[in-house]
Simulated assay, not measured.
Amino acid sequence: MDSQEQPIKGAQSVYRVLNILEAVIQRGDQMISPKELSSALDIPLATVHRLLAVLRQRNFVACDPVTKKYHIGEGCLINPKQNLGGYIRSRFTPLAERLSRRFGYPTILYARRGYDAVCVQRVDGWNPIQIYLNKVGDRRPLGMGSATLSILAALPEEEAEAILARNEEEIRWVLQTDFTALRRFLEQARRQGYAASSDMLLKGTIGVSHALRMGDEVIGSIAVDAMRSEQWERDEAFIVRELKESLLF
């Protein structure tokens, strides 16, 4: 073995922390439990819990409140090759999968790119009617649909208004309602902390979304789309609560 590969004496805890962090990063979109880490890395479970607590305190990892499994945290900057879309998929796909699995509706992740948002992940649910307004790779200007209204609502108002003015002509080409309704949905989103809209891109559709952040920066959104129905009326409040509780920063 090369001398550079020899473990450095007295640094066992450092090696363990780095091995845990590497294992979480390698999981990408999938989460991992402390027990799985303990087994894979041959580290006592109590030690794994203690080291994860340190990593979580520094935001290098985050813990899903339902499954108690871990995924990449917003402070994890060790993987410089990971672009914003990759970060959003790694960080928020577990939430999208949980929402889709629980409520049955398609749940979509978007990354903000300047004046636009790009679909970076889509998780379909079990509901027999799935709304296909976007597929992975599609872009839409900010202001087009609830998925982007949540991003605008989270931005400083002056910046949001400038973006909306810039995108207005393109939005009007596809908007199924009038621009007054769009502005009403935007004002509601600013007050509520999440966006909800209906009939904007397709008659009979409805959706909610919440902005995604990295620290103080608004980086994208997570959206749930559906056809208007009695089931949706029952589910919407629970979906909103799950989004808010899961995205507390």
Rank of each mutant, 00 (worst) to 15 (best):
R98D: 09
K81E: 15
P128W: 11
R139W: 12
A117Q: 08
G145T: 03
A226P: 03
P7E: 09
N59A: 05
S38D: 14
A226R: 02
I131K: 00
N127L: 04
I129A: 00
G104P: 03
V208M: 02
Y132M: 08
R191K: 12
V218S: 00
N59G: 00
S246M: 08
K203H: 14
G73P: 09
V208T: 05
Q188W: 11
D116C: 09
L51F: 15
V240G: 05
L142Y: 01
T205R: 01
A237T: 11
E36Q: 14
A53I: 05
L99Q: 02
I72D: 04
R58Q: 11
G143T: 07
A111E: 15
G10V: 10
P106I: 09
A96M: 05
S198Y: 07
A211P: 01
M200P: 00
F103C: 04
E159Q: 14
D29T: 14
V218C: 13
W126P: 00
A181R: 11
I108T: 10
A96K: 03
P80H: 10
P65C: 02
L164E: 06
G137Y: 08
E161H: 06
R183Q: 14
M1S: 07
E159A: 08
P65W: 06
N19G: 09
E170L: 07
R113L: 11
R184Q: 12
Q82D: 11
Y105L: 04
K68F: 13
S33Y: 10
L51D: 15
T93M: 07
I108M: 08
A62M: 13
R184S: 11
E230I: 06
L52G: 07
L133H: 09
Q12R: 12
V66Q: 12
E236P: 01
N59D: 12
F238K: 13
P94Q: 05
G145M: 07
A96L: 09
A196S: 07
F60L: 13
G145Y: 11
R228H: 06
E236R: 14
I131D: 00
L149C: 03
R58Y: 15
L84H: 00
M200D: 15
V218G: 00
W126F: 13
M1E: 06
Y87H: 04
H49Y: 15
E168G: 02
Q82K: 13
A162M: 10
Y87V: 03
M214C: 04
M214S: 04
A160G: 09
R166V: 01
E159H: 09
T107H: 01
A211M: 04
P34G: 06
E236Y: 07
T205A: 02
E217N: 02
T148R: 03
T148C: 06
R191Q: 14
R190P: 06
L248S: 09
G73I: 10
D42V: 14
Y132R: 12
P65I: 05
P44Y: 11
A226I: 05
S209C: 04
S90R: 10
E161V: 03
L77F: 13
D199N: 07
T93K: 05
